[in-house]
Simulated assay, not measured.
Amino acid sequence: MIKNSGLTLIELITVILILGIVSVFAVPRLSGSEAFSVIGARDAGLSVARQVQLRAMQQEIKTNELLSSCNALVVTASRMGGGNDTDCQWQGDRSDVVDLSDSQVRISPAQTFYFDLLGRPVSSDKTRLCTDASGCKITFTQSVSAASICLNSEGYFYACD
């Protein structure tokens, strides 16, 4: 009596189908570090944005006092984080900055967000920002990969597309 110990045609097709489905989703993510760089930069930027916002919410602002750039979220093409004025007296390494000058990831648009005591985004003259339905969007790009941070008028930062 001979025992056949091979795969049937149905089993073989099922295995090929499962491998095909897995490769469609996994290979683009694993084929290069570009997508990981953009997503990693976006996630770091999200953390920094929330940190700067919390620090700004803890500062007492008088009615006629100008908003301090030390508590502002400054976004440039290669940097996102707390203000960099000499008046702020920051020393050493800062945890509230994402510096992408050594990478190919770029941030747009360049802008500065201040926050009121409730964490809502405002301009330097205390005018509310991000008030339309789409809010404000900060985009991290590297060639064809992109990831974004959105900010609504109430100060909620979240990852978006």
Rank of each mutant, 00 (worst) to 15 (best):
E65A: 08
G119D: 02
Q104F: 13
R42L: 06
G92L: 15
V38D: 04
Q91V: 15
V98Y: 05
V74A: 14
I18A: 02
L73S: 06
S103M: 02
V38T: 01
S124V: 14
S33M: 13
A41G: 13
D87K: 12
L30C: 09
Y114K: 12
S108Q: 11
Q111V: 13
S124T: 04
I21N: 01
A44E: 06
L118I: 08
D93Y: 10
D125Q: 10
I107V: 03
Q111R: 09
Q59N: 03
W90V: 15
V38Q: 00
S95A: 15
R50T: 12
S108H: 12
Q111C: 05
G83M: 05
G20T: 05
D43F: 00
V24I: 11
D43Q: 12
R55F: 11
V74E: 13
V122T: 01
V52C: 10
T14P: 03
L66C: 05
Q89K: 15
I107H: 08
A26L: 09
R106S: 08
Q51N: 03
P28Q: 12
V38W: 04
S101I: 05
Q111P: 09
G83D: 00
A77C: 04
L66R: 12
R55P: 02
L100S: 00
L117K: 13
R50F: 11
G40E: 00
F25K: 07
S123R: 11
R55N: 12
S108A: 15
F115S: 13
P109R: 08
V24W: 13
G92W: 10
F115H: 10
